[in-house]
Write a protein that binds this DNA or RNA. Structure first.
Length: 890
RNA sequence: GGGCGGUUAGCUCAGCUGGUUAGAGCGCCUGCCUUACAAGCAGGAGGUCGCAGGUUCGAGUCCUGCACUGCCCACCA
């Protein structure tokens, strides 16, 4: 719902890049949507009013292609049906299959606002498209004209420069000689498309090219066609390239078209809309362009005009949609004068009104806009937004209007709407404002425009993103977002609200495990629904988030997902452990019943830090919370995911749960058990909230069970996202915990080495280097015994470092008492390795500490740290050496 | 022809603004069904950070060149 006037909460608006109706969900969608959903949920939980607006795109060519294929099975073409019937079929198709992708989306857990779902051909959006077109036309930014455009002979339509994909192919360059009239000489031209010679209307040479000076003003006889055409001088011909003379075909080449204009040459169109030769091609009429090429070459050869053929690699332009080789074609089209719009779009990014992350895309964006050509916006398709223009059959007047005009100004009523439709991207470029009710001045626009964020892939940086900026800045000029909301959203200082979005995050592309682009034709498409089926949505989302390092394409790898399925399982089991204890203790420990109400709290509610492990985990949780929030702030999804993962598995499960077990155990002190359990519950609750944006399903399920409807919020999605409380950082607790962990690991290590029976408890002796450590170990006695499987701990007053088997750190030496002999060779080996490492460390720290420059220039804490390290290493070195001596290692 | 990335453990990848002895997951080796979890637990092996220079007290991190690789852009016949 639209927030009313007076709303002072921040607003987060995000527009879903609308998938094509024809589409089915692929990994790229899921990747993109996972990142968006993480952002949306994160903002929502932090108290933003969020709008994530979904919709689908009518996708002109793509959709038409689908229906055409259907028709082809019935042996029909679209023109057999005619526009109206055809469009009916498309709508029919849309009704039947168009929902596929949105249905699939629902399984990703994407928390979009389905109530607002739109389709780009909806009436209100179509009306906005007409409005935009008419305004641009009235402003003189849209014009119509006969130009060379990229033409797809299969789709039978013009396409924009962006829709042409160039592909390097090994082709040929043919040299053809044209007889110069009135001489015995020939002039030789080179071409990669010999069939176009049929439409030649001149031969160009460079004015300064000495070789051809004597031909100036002469004519040649065009072979095969026996047409006289002039030799012109034009910069089109560059002396260095080929023969220095070039054939000019104004109707079939953009450069030649320009040259033709300069010299007033005739334009002879020799092809039809399917790139077959027409009557103008004389005897070649009816041939397909490649058949014609073959025939032309044969004939030239026979008649002695073909000089030679050379290998030549060329960049062949192909239709992005269907792969057919594009043919430059002269035709009447509609264009958008792009420069004025581009200038403003450049400014918006240059001045920081829009920020782009990662930053290198900023340059790419700017370069493109700086070198932009007018945009051909008309398409000769049936499916799409009809161009709101009519021509009068009596006076040829063109009328551009919002609604169908009744009659022409000449009085005639014979008006016919222009057959063309608009490029799909024309309408998608308008979505940031048209989906919010434009051209009406709606409250929605007031509140939700500009979007706070735009997340999309670089593959549509130009197609879509740049156009949204151009259109947004143009049509929303003078727009002001509700100031209270703007301020609350943290954008109070940005003056201009005409931009469609304030921040852009460009995500990477998902590739297959071999880094290949996924495509249907390659057959390497990984179906996200299949992955979800096998590993679960949460695990799949987590995989994508964890791999989403900005700027780096990701190679989707199932083994990672397998690992994150295990993670989900781990969470599940930890939750079981928690519930087990809650149930057993039979107390009101649900977080929903605590004083602070659990989830409305931005940290851990009611956490009572009684013990070292409590203080430690509280401190760690807050630090991790800080790291996660920071990471999300800068779109480092992978970092957020990894912190969340490591904390839970490596700290919470591996240590905290193990450490509190005695307190929870049967027969333990009831009050202490309840405190421990309550802490556990509240910590778990907070953790679930931290994790929720990435793994919405499992967190919701456990959270619901945890709260049992006892809380004001209906869903964890509306609970508060954890925020760090730096007061709860506890460095001493973290340091001490690390010492205990070291000790426990050392003992486990020794046990493994000595191959102590797993069940056998053994006595250990610990020498502490300082009283503090001694006390710590004394206090941690129970934990050490349990987690290291130790029988007794004796504090000794003399270092046992020399004795084998033992382990040493800078704080303690630990020696296990166990009669089995160690493997001397192996132990020597290990000690030597260890010593080597230590000495390497000593050498490097020694080198630096001996360097006056270092002491003078490095920051104090670095120097201090290094000194400390040097000292510790010295101690360890000595210990290792004496052990080696004791063992008598060679 | 321009531009942008990547090159770190067997595999897939982290390593943000240069600062202690470079990390994770998977895989591998050893041992464990320890009453939340064998999708698990404990321990372990494994890297001269693509190559060559340079800047710096200090470089996986910054600069230059090279190699390999991927991508984007481009109306030279």
């Amino acid at each position: 719902p639209t927030p009313p006037e007076g709303e002072t909460r921040p607003v987060f608006t995000l527009l879903l890049p609308p998938p094509n109706v024809t589409g089915s969900l692929h990994m790229g969608h899921m990747f993109e949507q996972t990142q968006m959903d993480v952002m949306v949920r994160w903002h929502r939980m932090r108290g933003f009013i969020t709008l994530w607006l979904p919709g689908t795109d009518h996708a002109g060519i793509a959709t038409q292609l689908m229906v055409e294929r259907q028709l082809a099975k019935e042996g029909k073409k679209r023109r057999d049906l005619g526009r109206e019937k055809f469009i009916e079929r498309v709508w029919e198709w849309k009704r039947q299959y168009g929902g596929t992708i949105t249905d699939q989306m629902k399984r990703l857990g994407a928390s979009v606002d389905w109530d607002r779902e739109y389709f780009t051909m909806d009436e209100n959006l179509s009306r906005a498209v007409r409005e935009v077109f008419v305004r641009l036309y009235e402003e003189g930014l849209i014009y119509r004209g006969k130009y060379i455009v990229n033409w797809c002979p299969r789709c039978e339509t013009a396409i924009s420069d962006l829709e042409v994909k160039h592909e390097e192919v090994a082709g040929k360059l043919w040299e053809i000689r044209y007889p110069v009239i009135g001489t015995n000489e020939f002039i030789t031209v080179a071409t990669t498309r010999p069939e176009t010679m049929l439409g030649d209307t001149a031969v160009a040479v460079n004015e300064n090219d000495e070789r051809y000076k004597h031909f100036h003003g002469k004519k040649v006889l065009l072979p095969l066609m026996n047409r006289e055409i002039p030799i012109i001088t034009d910069e089109l011909a560059q002396p260095e390239f080929g023969t220095g003379a070039v054939k000019v075909t104004p109707a079939h080449d953009p450069n030649d078209f320009q040259a033709g204009k300069r010299h007033n040459l005739a334009q002879i169109d020799i092809m039809d809309l399917n790139a077959r030769m027409n009557q103008n091609a004389g005897p070649y009429a009816g041939l397909d362009r490649y058949e014609a090429r073959k025939q032309v070459l044969t004939d030239l050869q026979e008649q002695g005009f073909l000089v030679r053929e050379k290998d030549h690699t060329l960049a062949l332009g192909k239709c992005d949609r269907c792969g057919t080789v594009v043919e430059p074609r002269l035709s009447e089209q509609w264009f958008l004068k792009i420069k004025p719009l581009a200038d403003r779009a450049i400014e918006a990014v240059e001045t920081g009104e829009i920020t782009i992350v990662p930053e290198n895309y900023k340059q790419i964006y700017l370069n493109w806009l700086r070198n932009i050509y007018d945009w051909c916006i008309s398409r000769q398709l049936f499916w799409g937004h009809r161009i709101p223009a009519w021509t009068c059959s009596d006076c040829n007047e063109v009328i551009v209007a919002r609604e169908t005009p009744k009659k022409c100004k000449c009085g005639s009523e014979k008006l016919e709407q222009v057959a063309d439709v608009l490029d799909t991207w024309f309408s998608s470029g308008l979505l940031p404002f048209t989906t919010l009710g434009w051209p009406e001045k709606t409250r929605d626009l007031n509140v939700f425009y500009p979007n706070l964020l735009m997340i999309t892939g670089f593959d549509i940086l130009f197609f879509w993103l740049a156009r949204m900026v151009m259109f947004g800045c143009h049509f929303m000029q003078g727009h002001h977002q509700d100031p209270a909301i703007k301020k609350a959203s943290g954008e109070g200082d940005k003056k201009n609200d005409s931009v469609p979005f304030r921040h852009v995050y460009i995500h990477a592309l998902v590739r297959d495990a071999d880094r290949q682009k996924m495509s249907k034709t390659k057959g390497n498409v990984v179906d996200p629904l299949d992955i979800i089926q096998r590993f679960g949505t949460d695990a799949t989302r987590f995989t994508l988030a964890a791999m989403a390092a900005p700027g780096t394409d990701i190679a989707f790898n199932e083994s990672r997902t397998e690992g994150y399925r295990a993670f989900a399982n781990k969470i599940w089991n930890a939750a079981r452990f928690m519930f087990m204890n809650v149930d057993r203790l039979q107390t009101n420990l649900r977080p929903g019943r605590t004083a602070e109400g659990g989830s409305s709290c931005k940290g851990i509610a009611d956490f009572r830090a009684k013990t070292l492990e409590d203080r430690w985990i509280l401190s760690r949780f807050n630090r991790v919370t800080k790291e996660v929030n920071n990471a999300l702030e800068s779109f480092r999804f992978h970092e957020a995911a990894n912190r969340i993962y490591d904390f839970f598995w490596g700290e919470f499960c591996d240590w905290y749960l193990e450490l509190i077990k005695p307190r929870l155990a049967e027969g333990a002190d009831k009050t202490a058990a309840e405190t421990a359990c309550s802490n556990l519950v509240n910590l778990f609750d907070a953790y679930l909230r931290l994790l929720h944006p990435v793994m919405p399903f499992i967190t919701e399920e456990i959270w619901q069970a945890l709260h049992e409807g006892q809380t004001a919020q209906k869903s964890i999605a509306l609970a508060a996202y954890p925020q760090p409380d730096e007061e709860q950082y506890d460095l001493p607790a973290e340091t001490n915990m690390a010492i205990l962990q070291d000790l426990i690991v050392s003992v486990r290590n020794l046990r493994a080495e000595l191959k102590v029976e797993p069940k056998e408890k053994i006595p250990i002796e610990v020498f502490s280097h300082d009283a503090e450590t001694g006390n710590l170990i004394q206090d941690g006695r129970e934990a050490i015994e349990r987690l290291a499987n130790v029988k007794t701990i004796s504090a000794v007053t003399e270092s046992r470092a020399r004795q084998v088997p033992s382990r040493s750190t800078a704080r303690f030496d630990v020696h296990v008492i166990y009669e089995r002999k160690i493997d001397v060779t192996a132990e020597c080996e290990r000690l030597k390795k260890e010593l080597e490492k230590i000495e390497k460390g000593i050498a490097s720290s020694q080198r630096q500490l001996g360097n006056e420059q270092f002491l003078a220039k490095a920051p104090a804490n670095v120097v201090e740290g290094l000194r400390k390290q040097r000292q510790d290493l010295g101690v360890l070195q000595e210990k290792a050496q004496s052990k080696l001596a004791e063992l008598g290692c060679g």
